[in-house]
Design a protein around this nucleic acid. Structure first.
Lengths: 218, 218
DNA sequence: TTTCTGGAAATAATCGATTATTTGACTCAG
DNA sequence: CTGAGTCAAATAATCGATTATTTCCAGAAA
């Protein structure tokens, strides 16, 4: 959905959509909270029509729940849904990584190395929002050449869902290092085209991330 | 998305969303066609705001393409995308069916038998729109207890995509019988809890449907 | 003929005001 | 007290009008 602003100048609706999406991922709004349209209008200083269009998109995308005549709500954070999202990510990203390793060319290898390098360079001092962007780009680069637009779409959608949990979870320094080194290992396995072990590792990586994210429920 | 009209009386936006969705699946609009908002307003006799909200939802759902400042377009029908949708359906519905067979209880068996019975009873004289509904319900019932809301969501979305191709394809009488008998076989394998063979059959079923649908491209 | 360019017409996007529905406080009968 | 009913305030949804952008065509220049 990020690429909605393909060419023409972004409309007010597209701009507020992207802003709201980021704010939802960053936990600016409490889980389950009702989003008052009047309040949002003032907060973001935006017209009613573009705002409502953005909210409708977010609901269709799955970041908001829409109840007729009762407006929009932020989704809850539950262990059950996190488990569902995690398992789907394991399956879909595992599948995508195998395909990417089969189909990826030299260009992919370069992009992957670059994305990994940029992510690895980012240290403690890097702003969170920037680290999140690099992290997101790394995982995108990893599966990019899987050959299925729909698979990539579902994976992005699940990443957004997952991030809602991960970003509000308390910092877990001890697991952070392990997760970081897995990024490097994933690159190594991808470059040596070891699809079997790469798939196993990304599944483990997702499960480990989920352990961190789990601390944001209840 | 169908259950958007959960409780409260449906809003104009929800009603026009569902109507447009059906019309898009039924091929009322040509692939790639630009949907003039002014024209849609007259056609469906609906206000501008609810119409635009519905269009925004449909774009986020993937049944329309939105270009900033240039309105909405119906998606193209291409062999490449049909192949993608088909392969994704094979993987996801195969996965879901295995899970459903593992988790489904007696209630599921009853629902499945009922759905199959209603579908099998529908003969040549049955209105197409009703047959489509029964067919859709059968496939939903098959995977319903897979345990993953996200998996079911993705499968529904892919079904809608697939139906755009299938419904505009010319009638294929010779394959129709084979597809119908596969429905019965799927029920048999589900009830005997033969996950392995059931998965193989649903994958075959999807591939065969795809052969029919392929005749709608180019 | 082809390629710009200006500007009117068409159309998408947005705004401001209005209508419809829900929410919550209050009343009163049981 | 409790629960149903009622009304006013809050808020979501919709409408009608306005603004901004794109599209398209005529006419000029190469």
């Amino acid at each position: 959905m990020t690429e909605t602003l393909k060419q023409g100048s972004a409309t007010a609706a597209s701009r507020i959509y992207e802003t709201l999406r980021q704010d939802l991922l960053n936990g600016r709004y409490r889980a389950g909270e009702r989003l008052s349209i009047t309040l949002l209008r003032e907060t973001y200083d935006v017209g009613l029509s573009p705002l409502r269009e953005a909210l409708n998109r977010l609901a269709a995308y799955g970041l908001l729940r829409q109840e007729n005549q009762r407006g929009f709500r932020v989704l809850e954070l539950t262990r059950e849904e996190l488990a569902d999202i995690t398992e789907m990510r394991r399956q879909l990203e595992g599948m995508a990584l195998e395909l990417a390793i089969r189909h990826g060319d030299e260009e992919w290898e370069s992009q992957l190395l670059a994305a990994n390098h940029r992510l690895a360079r980012a240290g403690e001092h890097t702003p969170v929002v920037e680290w999140e962007s690099l992290h997101s780009r790394f995982h995108s680069a990893l599966v990019a050449p899987c050959g299925s637009a729909w698979l990539l779409r579902f994976i992005s959608q699940l990443h957004d869902q997952f991030d809602r949990y991960r970003r509000v979870a308390p910092r877990a320094q001890e697991l952070r290092h392990q997760l970081d080194s897995q990024h490097q290992e994933l690159v190594d396995l991808a470059l040596t085209r070891d699809a079997r072990r790469a798939r196993a590792l990304i599944e483990e990586h997702i499960t480990l991330s989920s352990e961190v994210a789990k601390r944001s429920c209840r």
